[in-house]
């Protein structure tokens, strides 16, 4: 048997901002790069299914009429991931979480990364999902590799964070995710 036959080919799936991916395939590795953003990696060990999301909360500070807008967006991002795991056979009661990201990437903006991290920790605590590992805060961007079938996660600092910073700065400015769909029935 050749080495190639013995080693299963890892299929790498990138999870971009606003996305989530759930799988039970042992050959799938989910990857993402995080600055201020947070990625929650949730998994039900018994069902052997898990997934990752990647979100950046909108800046609700400027909207004093709706201070909970960011939390509603974050809760929705988490709900999408949890529901996908439930649909794939996982159970909420036996889910565990690993959370990453939330770095302070900008000096000239509010601590968006810190707020993202606080939200994720609070959400998981309130929903009763144990956080079994985390790497949050700091000033460095992170590269995350996560294998949902086993729960293994690798975190590496991204040395050249300029591209991450530029991309996030643009997304922070453009972030207007709280919008309604339109289905004219009522």
């Amino acid at each position: 048997m050749s080495l190639a036959e013995r080693q299963p080919a890892t299929r790498r799936i990138h999870v971009g901002q606003g996305e989530n991916h759930v799988t039970s395939d042992p050959d799938v590795m989910l990857s993402t790069i995080l600055g201020s953003c947070v990625a929650a990696c949730l998994r039900d060990e018994r069902a052997g299914v898990g997934g990752m999301n990647h979100f950046l909360l909108p800046d609700s500070v400027g909207n004093s009429n709706d201070p909970a807008a960011a939390a509603r967006y974050g809760a929705y991002a988490m709900e999408l991931l949890i529901n996908s795991i439930l649909r794939a056979g996982g159970r909420r009661e036996t889910m565990t979480a690993k959370i990453f990201g939330g770095a302070r990437m900008f000096d000239d903006l509010q601590n968006i990364g810190g707020n993202n991290a606080i939200f994720a920790e609070r959400f998981l605590r309130d929903e009763g999902i144990p956080i079994i590992a985390s790497s949050l805060g700091g000033r460095s961007a992170r590269r995350i590799h996560y294998w949902p079938a086993t729960g293994k996660a690798l975190v590496r600092a991204v040395e050249d964070a300029d591209a991450v910073k530029a991309s996030e700065r643009k997304r922070v400015r453009e972030a207007t995710p709280v919008v309604d769909g339109a289905v004219e029935l009522f």
């Binding site: 509603r72 929705y76 309604d180 769909g181 289905v183």
Partner: peptide, 28 residues
């Protein structure tokens, strides 16, 4: 509902829902 649930909104209307709201919604 979630953003992609157009079919669900139609079914909810058929079953007598008075209205629907797409997550993540605003206060307004």
């Amino acid at each position: 509902t979630g953003r992609a649930d157009k079919e669900l909104v139609q079914r909810a209307a058929q079953f007598g829902a008075n209205n629907y709201l797409v997550k993540p919604f605003t206060l307004m």
